[in-house]
Simulated assay, not measured.
Amino acid sequence: MLIITRQDLAELVPMRVAIALMKQVFIELSAGCVTVPLRVPIEVPEAEGTTLIMPAYVPAVSGLGLKVVSVFPRNREQGLPTIHAAVLAVDPTTGAPSALLDGTYLTALRTGAASGAATDLLARPDSRILLCIGAGAQGPTQAWAVCSVRPIERIYVYDRQPAAAASFAERFHRLAPEIQAEVIAVTDLPAAVREADVICTATTSREPVFDDADLKPGVHINAIGAFTPEMQEIPIATVQRAYVVVDHVEAALAEAGDLLKALHAGAITPEHIRVELGHVAAQQAPGRQSADQVTLFKSVGNAVQDVIVAAHAVRAAQERGRGLEVDLSR
Results as ranks from 00 to 15, higher is better:
residue 4 I to H: 05
residue 18 A to K: 09
residue 18 A to D: 06
residue 19 I to Q: 01
residue 29 L to T: 05
residue 32 G to P: 03
residue 34 V to D: 03
residue 37 P to Y: 06
residue 38 L to F: 10
residue 39 R to S: 02
residue 45 P to G: 04
residue 47 A to N: 14
residue 56 A to C: 04
residue 59 P to H: 07
residue 59 P to W: 06
residue 61 V to L: 04
residue 65 G to R: 13
residue 68 V to R: 13
residue 74 R to V: 01
residue 76 R to S: 14
residue 77 E to C: 01
residue 83 I to M: 13
residue 84 H to G: 03
residue 84 H to Y: 15
residue 85 A to Y: 05
residue 85 A to R: 03
residue 87 V to K: 02
residue 87 V to Y: 13
residue 91 D to A: 09
residue 96 A to E: 12
residue 96 A to Q: 13
residue 98 S to C: 14
residue 101 L to A: 07
residue 102 D to T: 11
residue 103 G to T: 11
residue 105 Y to W: 15
residue 107 T to W: 08
residue 110 R to I: 09
residue 111 T to L: 12
residue 114 A to S: 09
residue 118 A to R: 06
residue 118 A to C: 12
residue 124 R to D: 02
residue 130 L to M: 07
residue 132 C to I: 13
residue 138 Q to C: 06
residue 138 Q to H: 11
residue 140 P to L: 09
residue 142 Q to C: 09
residue 143 A to V: 02
residue 152 I to R: 10
residue 153 E to C: 04
residue 153 E to W: 03
residue 157 V to M: 02
residue 158 Y to R: 06
residue 160 R to N: 09
residue 165 A to Y: 02
residue 170 E to T: 12
residue 183 V to G: 00
residue 186 V to W: 02
residue 189 L to P: 00
residue 193 V to P: 00
residue 196 A to S: 04
residue 198 V to Y: 00
residue 199 I to C: 11
residue 201 T to N: 08
residue 201 T to R: 09
residue 202 A to H: 07
residue 207 E to G: 08
residue 214 D to R: 06
residue 215 L to K: 08
residue 218 G to T: 09
residue 218 G to C: 11
residue 223 A to V: 10
residue 223 A to M: 12
residue 224 I to L: 15
residue 228 T to C: 06
residue 231 M to F: 10
residue 232 Q to R: 15
residue 241 R to F: 01
residue 248 H to G: 00
residue 250 E to C: 00
residue 255 E to W: 10
residue 256 A to I: 07
residue 261 K to G: 03
residue 262 A to L: 05
residue 265 A to H: 08
residue 267 A to M: 13
residue 269 T to E: 08
residue 272 H to N: 02
residue 276 E to K: 01
residue 281 A to Y: 09
residue 283 Q to L: 15
residue 284 Q to W: 07
residue 285 A to I: 14
residue 289 Q to Y: 03
residue 290 S to V: 06
residue 294 V to H: 12
residue 295 T to F: 11
residue 299 S to C: 08
residue 302 N to C: 10
residue 308 I to G: 01
residue 310 A to T: 04
residue 311 A to I: 08
residue 316 A to D: 07
residue 319 E to D: 14
residue 322 R to Y: 10
residue 323 G to M: 09
residue 325 E to Y: 13
residue 329 S to E: 12
